[in-house]
């Protein structure tokens, strides 16, 4: 079974879990994702793999509590088992031939950016990491980033952590100061990735964005995760999740991402009140 081996709160809304899943751990690569169900009535949710331990047979996931299922997941504890855990799905981050890369993460997306930075560094690549958060309370993995990146820039919207400003401000400054990147890799909220891609387009720097659309099976069966990339329909689950950021139709992706927002909000509220009742 998929036992929760370790649970750690990274900030008030972001949790790390290490899950026992030997078959997934044996194959996992940075950039790939898993799909889990907490219990037999649960929906299927995709989460990007944050880390893996091949010999120990465990996979680390980091999730933000945004809906009913992540709320339920956050209420589970070490020693309990997830009902389902399948992967690794999607394609791994392409790292061949890269020498100097900027990795730009935002919010919980930094959880996925981190293993990419780590892998690139292991391959001998120079990596500049830019991580942006709303405020100091929400900062995650700061020490980890500092430890593995060649240069690390922390940004926050209100200036309570690192520099005040957006990740695009920091990236622009780096580029303008003469840093020459082979590639920019960006992982975070769609709106942030859209603006990162707009910026790098001006400088003609190849850019990859990691997409996390709504999906069900994760194997190419439903097509719910489809995106328009360069005028062609792609399935994030099997063709991605990473795509050429200059070709992604972000506006369409944002509209599709909001398809069930009313349902999700209601389900999350219902789940929260259920947990409150249990406490009382």
């Amino acid at each position: 079974m998929f036992e929760i081996l370790e649970k750690r709160s990274l900030n008030p809304t972001v949790t790390l879990m290490r899950i026992n899943a030997p078959r997934v751990a044996a194959k996992a690569e940075p950039g790939q994702f898993i799909i889990l169900r907490t219990d037999s009535e649960s929906e299927r949710i995709p989460l990007t793999i944050a880390d893996y331990d091949r010999s120990g047979g465990s996979v680390t996931i980091i999730f933000q509590i945004v809906g009913a299922t992540t709320e339920k997941l956050n209420h589970m504890n070490e020693g309990e088992c997830l009902c389902d855990f399948v992967g690794p799905l999607g394609r791994a981050t392409e790292t061949d031939g890269l020498e100097k890369v900027a990795v730009v993460g935002g919010g919980v997306g930094c959880a996925i950016a981190y293993p990419v930075v780590k892998k690139l560094r292991e391959l001998g690549c120079e990596v500049h990491a830019v991580a942006g958060f709303r405020n100091s309370e929400l900062v995650i993995l700061e020490d980890e980033f500092r430890a593995v990146s060649s240069k690390f820039i922390l940004m926050s919207d209100d200036g309570s952590a690192g520099e005040k400003g957006l990740v695009t401000d920091a990236l622009k400054k780096l580029i303008d100061s003469g840093e020459k990147y082979d590639r920019v890799i960006t992982i975070g909220p769609l709106i942030m990735m859209k603006f990162v891609c707009q910026l790098t387009k001006q400088y003609d720097i190849p850019t990859v964005a990691s997409m996390n659309p709504i999906m069900i099976d994760g194997t190419g069966m439903c097509g719910g995760c489809r995106l328009t990339v360069g005028g062609e329909t792609k399935f994030a689950c099997v063709d991605g999740p990473e795509f050429d950021g200059h070709l992604i139709d972000f506006d369409e992706a944002m509209a599709r991402g909001a398809m069930y927002r009313d349902f999700e909000r209601r389900a999350h509220e219902d789940t929260c009140s259920l947990f409150r009742k249990e406490v009382n």
């Binding site: 097509g223 719910g224 489809r226 909001a258 398809m259």
Partner: peptide
């Protein structure tokens, strides 16, 4: 790819 367009597979799944 508009919101509200499904494959039959997705809808039925």
């Amino acid at each position: 790819n508009l919101s509200g367009v499904y494959s039959a597979n997705e809808f039925l799944t």
